[in-house]
Simulated scan of single mutants.
Amino acid sequence: MTTPAQLPDWLTRVGVFDLETTGVDVTSDRIVTAHVGVLDRHGREIAARDWLADPGIAIPDGATAVHGVTTEHARARGRPAHEVVAEVSSALRMLFAQGMPIVAYNASYDFSLLAHEAARHGIPVLSAPQPIIDPLVIDKAYDRYRRGKRTLSVVAEHYAVPLDAAHEASADAVAAGRVALALARAYPLPGTATELHTQQIGWARDQAASLTEYFISVGRLDPQETLDGSWPIRT
Rank of each mutant, 00 (worst) to 15 (best):
Y105E: 10
Q207T: 10
L95I: 06
V155H: 14
A63H: 00
S170A: 13
A86R: 00
P232M: 11
T21D: 07
Q98D: 14
R146A: 15
L181A: 06
S89C: 07
L189D: 02
R93L: 02
T226S: 13
R93E: 08
T21G: 03
P190V: 01
P129M: 10
R79M: 05
S112K: 11
D228H: 06
V26H: 15
M100R: 11
A182V: 07
T226C: 11
M1P: 09
S90T: 13
D18Y: 07
A166W: 10
I138W: 05
Q207Y: 02
I138Q: 05
A171G: 10
D54W: 06
H158A: 03
A81I: 05
A208R: 12
A53I: 01
R234Q: 15
L211G: 03
A97S: 10
T235H: 13
A193E: 00
R77G: 04
K149W: 10
W51E: 02
V161M: 15
R30N: 07
L7D: 03
A209G: 04
H67Q: 06
L39Y: 14
V88T: 07
G99T: 14
A160G: 10
E195M: 02
P60M: 01
I138H: 09
V84I: 00
I46H: 09
L221M: 15
L196E: 00
A156M: 13
V84D: 00
E168V: 15
Y145A: 13
R220H: 14
L163W: 12
A104R: 11
A208K: 01
A209I: 00
H73T: 14
Q199T: 00
A34I: 06
G56M: 02
T151S: 15
H116L: 08
I59K: 06
P60C: 01
S170W: 06
A115M: 09
Y105D: 10
G177L: 04
D206L: 08
D9F: 01
A175C: 05
E87S: 03
L221K: 03
E225A: 09
I138T: 08
L11D: 07
G37N: 06
R234H: 12
S210L: 11
I132T: 09
D110S: 11
A184K: 04
V26R: 15
D50R: 06
L19K: 00
S230R: 03
G122A: 02
L92D: 06
W10K: 03
R30M: 05
R44Y: 13
P101D: 15
L181Q: 11
V38R: 12
V69S: 00
P135D: 04
E83D: 02
A81W: 09
I138N: 00
G122Q: 07
V154P: 15
Q207K: 08
V36F: 12
A169H: 05
L92R: 03
A175Y: 05
A156I: 02
A166E: 12
R185D: 11
D54Y: 01
A115Q: 12
S127E: 09
A104V: 09
L221D: 12
A65G: 10
R49W: 05
F17K: 03
A180T: 03
E87V: 01
P135W: 08
I102E: 13
M94A: 10
K140C: 09
